[in-house]
Write a protein that binds this DNA or RNA. Structure first.
Lengths: 134, 134
DNA sequence: CTGAATCCACCACGATACTG
DNA sequence: CAGTATCGTGGTGGATTCAG
């Protein structure tokens, strides 16, 4: 097994996900709604307000923080354009580009199954209400 | 375009992710570290303590909540075993099963690139410290 | 235009204790 | 074994204001 997997050990044929695996905090950061949509939107380079407009409902603060984290993780690059007033363009790095495919698969899955999931949620809540009623 | 996509509109060739898209809250719940690892572990049905043991570092409370949400979303089923003392077995539904592939792709990506990401983070923090120092 | 800074409410999570 | 209940706390996100 690859060396990068050394913190995910097998015990009796069962995979154990260890706390000290380096991928833990990473996974925590990339498994995030806004990160996924930012990566999706950056198929082409875009400026701050364009991203904000296309990510309907995101606040300025949250978008700024998301972009900072993505930049820190090496998935996007931030370029200040020599315009007046200043413009800032965000674009994917090769690393960010390579993340698009797994992200888009997950996103497509979500869109395709959201109806079924909503139905499950309603049924679950219905059962809960009945149980609580008794 | 499919009807399920009706809340993701295109404007001048640009994809806009709308707030009122039904997939929004779903995506928020699915893009979660623990959900991903629970789905990964449930390749075979497993009992509560087995899942807890294989998800190193998860607290009882958090695992319970994750399992409840996954159950509510119709991705896993909870079965009480007629044993003494009582046992509870969790297993994937077809819906949960179909989520395994996109999840595992994303997880593999994370493990494979965590080294590179850590490096990017260090470089970013280094630049930030220098900038702050001035 | 692209943020940074501040205030504040919420809830997610950890720790701990208790139960059928 | 598989939870529930409670408390305390830090972080996340919204709203608003200020700035280069």
């Amino acid at each position: 097994m690859s060396d990068t997997f050394r913190f995910e050990t097998d015990v009796d044929g069962q995979t154990v996900f260890r706390v000290d695996c380096p991928s833990r905090p990473i996974l925590d950061q990339i498994a995030d709604k806004w990160s996924m949509m930012v990566i999706a939107v950056l198929e082409r380079p875009a400026r701050f307000n364009e991203i904000k407009r296309r990510l309907d409902g995101v606040t300025q603060r949250v978008l700024t923080h998301s972009l900072r984290r993505l930049e820190r993780n090496g998935m996007i690059v931030r370029t200040v354009l020599p315009t007046s007033p200043v413009g800032v363009e965000y674009s994917l790095t090769p690393l960010g580009e390579s993340l698009r495919e797994p992200f888009m698969h997950l996103y497509s899955w979500t869109v395709q199954h959201s109806g079924q999931i909503q139905h499950s949620q309603q049924a679950f809540d219905e059962r809960s209400r009945k149980a609580a009623g008794q």
